[in-house]
Design a protein around this nucleic acid. Structure first.
Length: 423
RNA sequence: GGAGGGGUGCCCGAGCGGUCGAAGGGGCCGGUCUUGAAAACCGGUAGAGGUUUCGGCCUCUCGCGGGUUCGAAUCCCGCCCCCUCCGCCA
């Protein structure tokens, strides 16, 4: 969330961010509500001050058993009624304002390129090369089913479209990758956490999924709980409402979790295989940092995510998202896209975002050093990385003419020394 | 799920409906004393918001939300969380 001060002082920048992010937030309405809120507040606070003073006076008069007390009491009663009336209006104004404020997207950082959508994103670097094949590379669904490690029909049978069953070495590969990536993150100084997959509304609001993206979430209506779309939600909210000591920052967490996404509105897209699914595994990297450190920490986090792909020998490119492709809460974001030979295209396996103080303000996450006033932390996160698409890239990149799949060296210890998956 | 107990400032802990943003203790910061330190003593030690002639002034916050009252940390209602016992269960 943006501060009202910021919106008041930079209405043009906010309007531009709203437009560029293809959002519909009503900045003018917010400005109007803010001004009406403040005038009502000033009015009601003056009345309250008068009432507070009057009430003290009543107490004094009653102690002295003076009958002026009754007269003053009834005058204060009238004042109180007036206060209640204005407060009712104020509460309505405040409620509408809060609601609108939560729907204003973050303002992109100055370094973010202009652009309307994905085509405006800028490739900042790439690593490795597209592998060459002496045969026509197959798609992961063919490779996986032939090897008996992926079973889409049965996943559909038990849950529906958009779910995956991993079997045998497929399941083992999934587990190996999780362990491998967590170990990598631990080496980079991230503290591993394991967190709930069901979170309350406040947590979802804290990181910015709610109220805007309600229809993208799986919700358990009976309990007012949501299935997490990413570990970002529970992990970033770990410190919601806290004021941290500046010396304790940066906090770096890594977390494996299952992720649940309804993918509303993307029906008909990526329908085959496991490029777009309702449930997937992911290792997430989260940082809570000081304001002045967030740009450098963002670069470092992106490098940490890229290392996963480098160490597995997978070709990828890193894209700096343009203003139009930036998500609601992000101020700056790198997408890391891995090459999938069977698809003939790059797949996004990580979005490394700097939210600046946008999430921290929503969740009341602050830090303070010495005498200074508490300031909002900056929060960042990125996948390190999402599993299904990583497995897609792995299977499609390392597939052999005989249908087997070679395993990259660093992964082998996690699979009991196995060098290749074959049927 | 049932019964009971409880949620107060950085921590512990007190708080007849009135001058309580809150006693007392501890911690922390500053000072006095000291060659230095400890002890002792003195002082300070929340956040958010509004307003400001930038000295302040005002409002709100004692788990959260409502209510009663001239006035609520204190009374009433709902919710959340923690603890104990019982039940159930991996």
């Amino acid at each position: 969330m943006l501060s009202l001060d910021f919106i008041r002082e930079n209405p043009e920048a906010v309007r531009r961010a709203v437009a560029d992010k293809h959002d519909a937030a009503d900045v003018d309405r917010i400005l109007a509500l803010d001004s009406s809120r403040r005038s009502k507040l000033t009015e009601v606070e003056a009345l309250k001050a008068e009432r507070n003073a009057g009430s003290k006076e009543v107490g004094r008069l009653m102690k002295e058993k003076r009958d002026e007390a009754e007269k003053l009491k009834s005058r204060m009663k009238e004042l109180g009624d007036k206060v209640a009336a204005i407060e009712k209006e104020l509460a309505a104004t405040q409620e509408e304002l809060d609601g609108l404020l939560l729907r204003v997207p973050n303002v992109p950082d100055d370094s973010v390129p202009a652009g309307a959508g994905a085509e405006g994103n800028v490739e900042v670097r790439s690593w490795g090369q597209k592998p060459e094949f002496s045969f026509q590379p197959k798609a992961h669904w063919d490779i996986g089913e032939a090897l008996g490690i992926l079973d889409f029909p049965r996943a559909t049978k038990i849950s529906g479209h958009g779910f995956t069953v991993f079997k045998g070495l497929g399941a083992r590969l999934e587990r190996a990758l999780i362990a491998y990536m967590l170990d990598l993150a631990a080496k980079a100084g991230y503290t591993e956490v394991a967190v709930p997959y069901l979170v309350n509304r406040a947590s979802m609001t804290g990181t910015g999924q709610l109220p805007k993206l309600e229809e993208d979430m799986y919700k358990l209506a009976a309990d007012e709980l949501y299935l997490i779309p990413t570990a970002e939600v529970p992990v970033t909210n770990l410190h919601a409402g806290e004021t941290l000591q500046a010396e304790a920052l940066p906090l770096k967490y890594c977390c494996y979790s299952a992720c649940f996404r309804r993918e509303a509105g993307s029906y008909g897209k990526d329908t085959r295989g496991m490029i777009r699914v309702h449930q997937f595994d992911k290792v997430e990297l989260v940082k809570i940092v000081r304001e002045e450190d967030s740009p450098a920490e963002h670069e470092a986090l992106t490098a940490d995510a890229e290392r996963v792909l480098q160490s597995l020998g997978l070709h990828y490119r890193t894209m700096l998202l343009c203003r139009g492709d930036l998500s609601f809460a992000a101020a700056r974001c790198y997408d890391i896209e891995v090459w999938a030979p069977g698809q003939g295209r790059f797949l996004e396996v990580s979005s490394c975002s700097n939210f600046r103080d946008f999430q921290a303000r929503r969740m009341g996450l602050k830090y303070k050093d010495g005498q200074s006033k508490p300031r909002f932390c900056h929060t960042l996160n990125g996948s390190g990385t999402a599993l299904p698409r990583l497995v897609v890239a792995l299977l499609e990149t390392y597939q052999q003419a005989d249908g087997s799949v070679l395993l990259p060296e660093p992964l082998r210890p996690y699979l009991g020394g196995l060098e290749r998956i074959k049927s």
